[in-house]
Amino acid sequence: MATATTTSNASRHSRTDHVSHPAFRADAQFAGHLQRLLVDLNDLALQGKQAHWNAVGPNFRDLHLQLDEIVDAARTFTDDVAERMRAVYVVPDGTSARTAAQSSLPAFPGGEVRTGDAIDAIVASIYAVTGTAREIHDDVDAADPTTADLLHGIIERLEQLAWLTDAERREPETSVPEAIIA
């Protein structure tokens, strides 16, 4: 009897039985934009852990903890973007192969890395992610302002983390870019 019920339920849930009518569904360009951001965020999380494990030198402990914060943010945002993709009927691809092939982040150095060099590399990668988010923003916003709100949060937090991390290397009135005095 259980087999008949299982079979009956399986046939009731065939592909042609279910129809949804979402208010918004992504098109190919929108899907591609979110996939680009997903890949970059995934790579940022990986690079952050690489730096976390291999940075050595002055202020190591502070950087070690800061890198955990960056990784946590990148992982959270990766999940947020992937879940948003699913909500608008896009299938995310967060595989290592896709990430390695399509990330726009500069490569993170292998082996042990001096803390100052690790800071410079991870800040460059954070800015690469925010660059991707800013580049796709207007198209995403035109298609779906709700998803653009997600980008706003990502940009805001990652730029804050870049500033907090980069401040370790800055010198007053001599660093590039120069501070703007309001």
Rank of each mutant, 00 (worst) to 15 (best):
Met1Ser: 11
Met1His: 08
Ala2Met: 00
Ala4Asp: 08
Thr5Ile: 13
Thr5Phe: 13
Thr5Lys: 14
Thr5Arg: 12
Thr6Ala: 12
Thr7Arg: 15
Ser8Pro: 07
Ala10Pro: 01
Ser11Pro: 01
His13Thr: 06
Thr16Glu: 15
Thr16Trp: 13
Asp17Tyr: 07
Asp17Glu: 06
Asp17Ser: 11
His21Ser: 12
Pro22Ile: 08
Pro22Thr: 09
Phe24His: 10
Ala26Trp: 01
Asp27Lys: 06
Ala28Cys: 00
Phe30Cys: 03
Phe30Gly: 02
Ala31Gly: 12
Gly32Ile: 08
Gly32Thr: 06
His33Lys: 04
Leu34Arg: 06
Gln35Glu: 06
Arg36Tyr: 01
Arg36Asn: 07
Leu37Ser: 14
Leu38Phe: 11
Val39Asp: 08
Asp40Leu: 13
Asn42Met: 04
Asn42Ile: 01
Asp43Phe: 11
Leu44Pro: 01
Leu46Ser: 09
Leu46Met: 15
Gln47Phe: 14
Gln47Met: 10
Lys49Gly: 05
Ala51Gln: 07
Ala55Ser: 10
Ala55Gln: 14
Gly57Pro: 10
Pro58Ala: 08
Pro58Tyr: 01
Pro58Glu: 05
Asn59Pro: 00
Phe60Asn: 06
Phe60His: 12
Arg61Thr: 15
Leu63Asp: 01
Gln66Thr: 15
Gln66Lys: 12
Leu67Glu: 03
Leu67Gln: 07
Val71Gly: 14
Asp72Phe: 14
Asp72Cys: 12
Ala73Gln: 05
Ala73Val: 03
Arg75Thr: 10
Phe77Lys: 03
Phe77Ala: 08
Phe77Glu: 14
Asp80Asn: 13
Val81Ile: 15
Ala82Gly: 15
Ala82Glu: 06
Met85Trp: 10
Ala87Glu: 09
Val90Ser: 03
Val90Glu: 05
Pro92Ala: 00
Pro92Tyr: 00
Gly94Leu: 03
Thr95His: 14
Ser96Lys: 03
Ala97Arg: 08
Ala97Asn: 03
Arg98Leu: 05
Ala100Ser: 13
Ser104Asn: 13
Ala107Asp: 07
Pro109Leu: 03
Gly111Glu: 02
Thr115Asp: 00
Thr115Pro: 09
Ala118Cys: 11
Asp120Arg: 13
Ala121Gly: 00
Ala121Phe: 02
Ile122Glu: 02
Ala124Arg: 03
Ile126Trp: 02
Ile126Gly: 00
Tyr127Gln: 13
Val129Leu: 03
Thr132Val: 15
Thr132Ala: 05
Ala133Asp: 04
Arg134Gln: 12
Glu135Val: 02
Asp138Glu: 11
Asp139Asn: 06
Asp139Glu: 07
Asp141Phe: 10
Asp141Ser: 10
Asp141Asn: 09
Ala142His: 08
Ala142Cys: 03
Asp144Leu: 11
Asp144Phe: 10
Thr146Tyr: 09
Thr147Ile: 09
Leu150Glu: 05
Leu150Trp: 11
Leu151Trp: 11
Ile154Lys: 06
Ile155His: 02
Ile155Trp: 06
Glu156Trp: 01
Leu158Trp: 05
Glu159Tyr: 05
Leu161Phe: 03
Ala162Ser: 09
Trp163Ala: 02
Trp163Arg: 10
Leu164Ser: 07
Thr165Asn: 08
Thr165Lys: 02
Glu168Met: 10
Glu168Thr: 11
Glu168Leu: 09
Glu168Ser: 09
Glu168Asn: 07
Arg170Ile: 04
Arg170Glu: 08
Pro172His: 07
Thr174Ile: 13
Thr174Met: 08
Glu178Gln: 09
Glu178Trp: 00
Ala179Ile: 14
Ile181His: 02
